[in-house]
């Protein structure tokens, strides 16, 4: 069974909603003192920047590959002496323009190269073919062989998107490990809410809640079914621990819109 909809999703939505509730007045008000609190938006982590740049590259298409079985491939890699230790990039951002020119509904997947290699200990699982050109490197990136879908000259060569998805999902399913649903790997492209959220100049908390519910009515209904709302008395999880939450929002909160 695949889980196309992870049970974590409602929680995520709720969290997002909560964040919005707090953030929205700030977004709307745009008062100068908040500027001092935010970090410089121009600054980016250098490794992430490298990954982002690398993701943008499109390498020349490899027409022909050596046709060999998986065992032969493993043996060859052993003969050449390639292994996990030779990894040059510890992670990739899978954000190729080859895919993006067609569609852009999800954020890029962050693929942990080293982590996967360490777990599998077999490069041939993903690097399943080598270029026919003897001068070429032994292992190449996915997008060297897999580019546009449905190429006329290579009708059965998988496109890059399908190559990723088939490789990841098949393996995650066979190993019963790793996500097989969309949002397990991708952050969904959340539209910029700066334009969407419409609030009065000095909004009251319930204005904010109402504004959220305008587009996300289901989130409100869901909220009413959560323990966050329905709590009465001690929670089994919080009793005798540090946080003693005694009441749910539904019974005592001020902003129970």
């Amino acid at each position: 069974m695949i889980r196309a909809f992870s049970p974590g999703a409602p929680v995520r939505i709720l969290v997002a909603l909560m964040v919005l509730v707090w953030a929205a007045p700030a977004l709307a008000a745009e008062t100068p003192d908040t500027d001092e609190l935010t970090l410089n938006p121009e600054w980016r982590a250098p490794d992430q920047e490298t990954a982002r740049e690398r993701a943008k590259e499109v390498v020349p298409f490899i027409e022909a590959v050596v046709d060999e079985c998986q065992l032969c491939r493993q043996q060859r890699l052993r003969d050449v002496g390639l292994g996990v230790k030779d990894i040059t990039h510890s992670y990739f951002l899978l954000d190729s323009p080859i895919i993006k020119q067609r569609e852009d509904y999800y954020g890029p997947v962050r693929f942990m190269h080293t982590k996967h290699a360490a777990a599998i200990q077999d490069c041939a699982v993903c690097h399943h073919a080598r270029p026919a050109d003897k001068a070429a490197k032994e292992t190449v990136r996915c997008s060297a062989c897999h580019q546009e879908s449905f190429r006329g000259d290579h009708p059965d060569r998988l496109g890059l998107k399908a190559a990723y998805h088939q490789q990841c999902i098949d393996c995650h399913r066979n190993e019963a490990k790793g996500p097989v649903d969309c949002v397990g790997c991708h952050p969904k492209n959340v539209p910029d809410h700066k334009e969407l959220v419409k609030l009065p100049a000095d909004p009251e908390p319930w204005d904010v809640t109402a504004e959220c519910l305008r587009c996300h009515p289901g989130a409100g209904e869901d909220m009413l079914l959560t323990a966050h709302w329905l709590w009465k008395g001690h929670s089994a999880y919080t009793l005798d621990h540090q946080k003693k939450v005694m009441h749910g929002k539904g019974t005592t909160a001020i902003n129970n819109f």
Binding site: R102, E103, S149, F150, G152, P155, D156, L158, G159, K161, A162, H165, Q166, I169
Partner: peptide, 17 residues
Amino acid sequence: GLPGCAEICPTEAITFG
């Protein structure tokens, strides 16, 4: 141009040609 479904299919279960 591709049919909407063939374009979106994440696994190329639909091959257009």
